[in-house]
Simulated scan of single mutants.
Amino acid sequence: MIYVDNNATTSLAVDVALAMSQAYESAFYNPSSQHQAGQKARRRLDDARETILNSLGAVTTRFASDRLVFTSGGTEANNLALFGLGKETSGQVIISAIEHPSISEAADQLTSRGMKVRVLPVDGNGVVQFDQLDQWLTEPTRMVSVMLGNNETGVLQPIQEIATICRDHEVPLHVDAVQGIGKIPVNFRALGASAMTLTPHKFHGPRGIGALVLDDRVTLKPSMFGGSQQLAMRPGTESVELAIGFERALQLAVEALPDAGPSMLALRDRLETLLTDLIGEDEMVIIGRDAPRLPHTSNVAFPGLDRQALVMALDMAGVACSTGSACASGSSQPSPTLLAMRLPEDVISSSIRLSLSRFTTEPEVDEVASRISNCVKHLRQG
């Protein structure tokens, strides 16, 4: 099986597994315990937190210190941000039309509770249009949430421009950066965001842990109660082992990025070129290709085919890919992201997502292109 579904999850790097194995042996103690062993685990947890913050360009000085709240993953971190960011409990929330379900469906919950939620539209390439944002922010606003790079199309968003507008209105901006970390340089302070979500299983780290990075000036209300851990912002016994795996995975991703980023981009472009040559430019659509994209993500449509039938055929042919977000991959409903882009129905219904990692090889890409071509031609003939 050739795996090109890395936006769903990635393999665990060997060095990360080793670091976690050692932690399970030596740092299994409860970091909230008062005995020496527990306090040793606490120090190791704090070291991991500081290393992660520093790797992300956050500020950790005695004059200003950004914070990192460990969660169970990206979904919890996004929910924590949407429900907890901002000084006020009232006021509208603004999101984009292409957010991950952990933002968009959480926003639906806010709507059901009577809160006003406004949605920024996107253009035909999937880029968020923020012309109205300055005007919208003249109304009381609790927070804004816009993702860094789309999980389905890879299209990058104008975060710094949006952050400037939010800053002028003193409204916190949350950025879901889950798909960007390890693929492009991401500096929390340079983005200008008030909060940022990430999770290491997208860059060869462990599942079961994520984080919300918080600017030192932002207020966060907890969604869970019953403990004093993490300044009571997210109570519960922290997993030192998962935090150490998170730390090591991020270190490796940042170290590899100068080579891995261009390599993934070259392989992504090679894959798209091969598909075009094998299938024909008139027989396929590369979604978002005219916008800046993450280097590892390609969303390709084959009008006239059914996306789920194609993914099943590819699975049988030994290619693991998806029809979109893994959190919604079991749904037969069309992609909200592609609908928001106002793409033709035959494009939306025939698109698949191919996502690479820093461990993907050129022979794998060549073979994937060949197998997709064979499956597409077979389905068209059938």
Rank of each mutant, 00 (worst) to 15 (best):
K116S: 13
Q157F: 07
G124P: 04
V119T: 15
V146D: 00
V122I: 10
E139W: 04
T138M: 10
Q157E: 12
A97K: 01
M143W: 04
E152C: 13
M147E: 12
N151G: 15
P158M: 02
Q135F: 05
P101N: 09
S96W: 01
H100T: 15
D123M: 11
T138V: 10
T138L: 12
S112I: 02
V119H: 03
V144S: 09
M147H: 14
I159S: 03
G114K: 07
M115P: 01
D123T: 10
T141K: 07
A106T: 15
R113C: 09
P140T: 08
L148I: 04
M115C: 09
V144T: 07
D108K: 14
L110G: 12
I103L: 13
Q132F: 02
L133Q: 09
V117Q: 02
V127F: 00
L156A: 07
G126D: 02
G114Q: 12
M147N: 10
I94W: 03
V144M: 06
S112Q: 15
A106Q: 13
D108T: 08
Q157M: 08
E152K: 02
I95T: 14
G114W: 09
M147F: 02
V122D: 05
V146C: 06
V122L: 06
V146M: 07
Q109Y: 05
Q109W: 08
G124S: 11
P121I: 04
A97Y: 00
D131P: 09
L156C: 11
W136D: 08
A97Q: 05
R118N: 12
Q129N: 14
I103W: 01
S96D: 15
T111V: 11
W136A: 11
Q132V: 04
P158K: 04
S112C: 04
I98S: 00
S102H: 03
L137H: 11
S112F: 05
L137C: 11
N150V: 02
I98F: 00
T141H: 06
I94A: 12
L137K: 11
F130C: 08
I95R: 12
A106S: 15
S112D: 14
Q109L: 12
L110M: 10
